[in-house]
Amino acid sequence: MTMRTAKHPTSVRGLKLAVLALGSAFILAGCAGNPPTEQYALAQTAVNDAVSNGGVEFAPVETKSAQDKFKQAEIAMHDEKYDEARYLAEQAEWDARVATRKAQAVKAQKAVQDAHQGVQDLREEGMRNAQ
């Protein structure tokens, strides 16, 4: 009688996961020394968009937060603290995107209110003319 040894799928899967994790660690370590120029550019664009979309007026807290974090990322880039710069640039980008969306929502809400007021004014004018 011959005994066959069955491969354990869980051990093979575990080995694959370990290799994947190790490879990811090497990739991340390789990226740590590189300036996050792409993320920095994305953050800068997002902050500029927030400002140009009315973020300073309609989402001042979020816009200020984005600007502050971007400035900190700029300093970290200058000091070659690239991991910190990447993190701050990501945070600045997300804060800026929130500011842009909030500003757009507030402006849209204001437009709806203005439209309702316009309709109300027309009704009142129509009532005066009907008398």
Rank of each mutant, 00 (worst) to 15 (best):
M3C: 01
R4Q: 14
T5C: 04
T5H: 05
A6W: 14
H8S: 09
H8T: 11
H8A: 02
T10Q: 14
T10E: 15
S11H: 07
V12L: 07
R13W: 06
R13K: 09
R13G: 09
G14E: 02
L15W: 11
L15S: 13
K16Q: 15
K16V: 15
V19K: 10
V19S: 03
L20G: 10
A21N: 04
S24Y: 09
S24V: 12
S24I: 11
A25I: 06
I27T: 08
I27R: 01
C31M: 10
C31I: 07
A32N: 07
G33R: 03
N34S: 07
P35K: 07
P35Q: 09
P36G: 08
P36F: 03
T37K: 12
T37M: 05
Q39E: 12
Q39I: 11
Y40P: 06
Y40H: 08
A41H: 09
L42K: 12
A43K: 04
Q44F: 03
Q44R: 15
Q44P: 01
V47H: 02
V47Q: 04
D49L: 08
A50Y: 05
A50D: 04
V51I: 15
V51N: 00
S52Q: 14
S52T: 07
G54A: 08
G55A: 03
G55E: 01
V56G: 02
E57N: 12
F58R: 01
P60Y: 07
V61M: 01
V61N: 12
E62W: 02
E62V: 03
E62Q: 10
T63F: 07
K64D: 15
S65D: 08
S65F: 04
A66R: 03
Q67L: 08
F70E: 04
F70L: 14
F70Y: 12
F70P: 05
K71A: 15
Q72T: 07
Q72C: 02
Q72W: 05
Q72D: 09
E74M: 04
E74N: 11
I75W: 03
A76Q: 00
M77A: 01
H78Q: 15
D79C: 08
E80I: 08
K81P: 04
K81A: 01
Y82F: 13
Y82I: 01
D83Y: 01
E84W: 02
E84H: 00
A85S: 09
A85I: 00
R86K: 13
R86H: 13
Y87K: 14
Y87T: 07
L88W: 00
L88H: 01
A89W: 04
A89R: 08
A89P: 06
E90Y: 07
E90I: 11
E90Q: 14
E90S: 11
Q91P: 00
Q91S: 06
A96W: 01
A96K: 05
A99N: 04
T100Y: 05
T100M: 02
R101L: 14
K102T: 10
Q104S: 05
Q104P: 01
Q104G: 04
A105V: 05
A105N: 10
V106K: 06
V106G: 02
K107H: 10
A108N: 10
A108I: 11
Q109R: 06
Q109M: 06
Q109P: 00
Q109W: 13
K110M: 06
K110T: 03
V112H: 10
V112F: 09
D114T: 09
A115E: 09
H116P: 00
V119W: 13
Q120I: 12
Q120D: 07
D121W: 04
R123H: 09
E124D: 15
E125S: 13
M127Q: 15
M127T: 10
M127S: 12
R128G: 08
Q131M: 08
Q131K: 08
